[in-house]
């Protein structure tokens, strides 16, 4: 059975309260339904939910996990909040791209950029790179 740990940290950027949510392990069919509820609870509790999803230690996510990310995005936007992703591994960024999530949710290569995006306007890198990415590893699939 896959294991995942989700940790929450409060961060303040320019007076704005942000929840840094770090994922470690694997999100799959065995755990995502339960784990997703923790994020919904955070969104529910924050008046203006500003979330950074830190995927540095996330090793695997399935299609349903990605579906939850889009649903969190919708709920956050409906409350005038913001949600970004930071530090995805090469394989995670690859799957986020193939399902088109990177066109909806901004992905930042490093945590500082992700934090800064909630303060002063910081444009994301033109081509988002994954942690440890090499040019070939972030290409669009040929299949």
């Amino acid at each position: 059975m896959a294991q995942v740990q989700i940790t929450f940290q409060d961060v303040n950027v320019g007076g704005k309260a942000i929840k840094l949510i770090a994922f470690a392990g694997q999100l799959d069919e065995t755990n995502v339904d339960n784990e997703a509820q923790k994020i919904y609870q955070v969104i529910e509790e924050m008046a203006e939910p500003n979330l950074i999803l830190d995927f540095l230690d996330l090793e695997y996510m399935n299609s349903k996990s990605i579906g939850y990310v889009t649903d969190w995005y919708s709920k956050v936007m409906s409350k005038n909040g913001k949600i970004v992703i930071t530090r995805p591994r090469v394989n995670i960024l690859d799957i986020l791209k193939v399902v088109g999530i990177t066109q909806i949710v901004t992905v930042y290569e490093n945590l500082e950029e992700a934090k800064a995006s909630f303060g002063a306007a910081v444009a994301p890198a033109p081509e988002v790179a994954a942690v440890g990415a090499t040019p070939n590893q972030t290409e669009t699939p040929q299949a």
């Binding site: 399935n62 299609s63 349903k64 579906g67 889009t70 649903d71 399902v99």
Partner: peptide
């Protein structure tokens, strides 16, 4: 344009 939680596995991945 897919807004549901499901529906990306077969058709996208």
């Amino acid at each position: 344009t897919i807004t549901s939680i499901r529906g990306r596995g077969l058709t996208q991945i």
